[in-house]
Simulated assay, not measured.
Amino acid sequence: MTDRVVRVLETFDADRTVQTAAQIGRRARLPSSTAQRLVADLVEAGLLERDDENRVRLGLRLWELALRGSLALRLRQVALPHMERVQARIREHTQLAVLEQEEALFLERLSHPQAGANITRVAGRLPLHASSAGLVLLAHAPEEVRERVLARPLRALSPETVTDAAQIRSALVRIRREGHVIAPGSIEQVSTGVAVPVRDGHGGPVIAALAVVLPREAPTGGAIEELRLASHGIEAALAASRP
C-alpha cells in the first residue's frame, strides 16, 4: 500500500500540478479502480484536494506534515539570510541543494528579475553529475553513492555536460581539494554554475551545496568568495542553533 501511495504522489511535479484520477492511475501504473480508491482515500485524509472540475492536486495537509520537524526546513531557514546577502551582491541566481536519493534536490532559489537562464526550481531535482551543486554533493557523498552514480549511463543536459566517469572522478578530487567547483555550460551553454559545500557546523559532514548561476562569460572569483563567506555563516548558525 505504501508503495502505491508514493507512486500516486510522485505523479505530481512542477509541470503537472493538477490531474484527473485516470491520469494519475496511468502515470502510477495502477489499475483504474485502485487509483480511484487511493485518490479518494488521500483526498479524505487531506493529502490530495479536488477542484471544482473534480481534478486533483497535492493538499495542504501534505505540505503541513512535510514541514513538521523537517531538517530541510531548518537548513533553509538558517541559510536564507546568507543566501540573500549573496544574491544582493551577485544579482543573478543563488540556490541551495541537498543530496536526496542520489540526486540534487533544490530547497531554495533566489533570482534577480533580469538574471540569465536557469532551469532550477524549488523542490526540483537535477542529476548530480550535471550541475555545480550536484558535483559538490557528489564529491562529498559516501564512496558507495559516488560509485553507484558513476556506474550508470550519465545523461547529457547540454553539449558540454561531462558524462565520462573518469573525467568526473578527477573533477571530484579537485572539488574536495579546492573547496569549490566552476561548471561552465554543464546545463545550459549560456550559463556557468559555481558552488561550494555547506557543512553541518564547523568541521561537520557536508550536508548541502550553495551555488550561484552566472552568465557564461561572467568572472567567478567574486562569486566564489561570496559563497564561501555565506557557507561559513550558515555553518556557524547551524552550530549555534543546536540545543
Rank of each mutant, 00 (worst) to 15 (best):
L99S: 09
P197I: 01
G25H: 03
A133K: 03
E64P: 02
I24V: 14
L138R: 04
L227H: 06
N54I: 00
T2H: 15
L138M: 03
A165G: 01
R174F: 04
T94V: 12
V136Q: 08
E102A: 14
F12L: 08
Q23K: 08
Q114C: 10
T120M: 14
P184Q: 03
A230Y: 01
A208S: 04
A166H: 09
E53R: 12
A171F: 05
P205F: 13
Q95Y: 13
A218I: 00
A239H: 07
E217P: 00
I175C: 10
E49F: 01
V98G: 13
V6A: 15
H112I: 00
S33N: 12
E160D: 14
A117E: 09
H82P: 01
D200M: 01
R155H: 05
V173N: 08
L96W: 03
H140P: 06
P113E: 11
Q189C: 13
H180E: 03
A209R: 01
T94I: 06
A218T: 02
V162C: 11
L229G: 13
S231M: 08
E188Q: 09
A45E: 07
N118K: 00
S170T: 05
A104H: 10
E102Q: 10
Q189V: 15
S158T: 06
A117I: 06
R174P: 01
L73D: 12
S70D: 02
Q77P: 00
S191A: 15
